[in-house]
Amino acid sequence: MSSSILDAIDRIVAGNRVYAQQTSEQDPNAFKEWNKGQSPEVLWIGCADSRVPETTVCNCKPGEIFVHRNIANCVPADDISSASVVEYAVTHLKVKKVVVCGHTKCGGANAALADADLGQTLNTWLHPVRELRRKHKTELDKLPDDDARSLRVAELNVQQSLEVLRLHPAVKRAINERGLSLHGMIYDIGAGQLRLLEASGVKKTNGLWSPN
């Protein structure tokens, strides 16, 4: 079914009918169960990129993954949207894992490596990613090509988001009290595979700010 034949909106309305029908055929109680509430184990913070739909690539069912997706899976310390998602997921839903997932061929990482003016909105949002490029210039310059540099920036950006998350008071509390764990991942778009990042970059607190 190509979108040139069917109107784009008719197409997803039809797609939704198929989804509703198939879901209740496979499990007649599915919607009744979901109607009662949600208890996801995982909070996924990922890129808005259309090629990384979390529930599909993890082969999970609806109800399993609570989701925040934005440009380049950033978690700026002063961002109220992601902070609210984290608070709701960790304190109220009591998820057990928080995953930050970056990916290869990320438009945000590529933009951060280039010098194009993306307009004030995107320039501001991507500023922390561009800062990574500046901070890690020596390492990035040694890499063989743009794809490798883009991947490395995506990895560093995941680590940066994890560092902000570790300082979120709800996260800190949940780590201590009930073993909440944080994980960095990279999704390889060309292979369809997830890769776990080593838990590196965990900085010891230096006495400046340590919520407990």
């Binding site: 949600q38 990129d49 259309s50 739909p53 599909t56 609806p62 399993e64 609570f66 925040h68």
Partner: peptide, 29 residues
Amino acid sequence: SDSRIPAEAVTGLEPGEMFIHRNIANLVC
């Protein structure tokens, strides 16, 4: 952000077809 509504699944779309933003209560502030 609710876990029960994965956008691509409920619309029957393939990866690559829908750009997705999800936050608490689908707000646009």
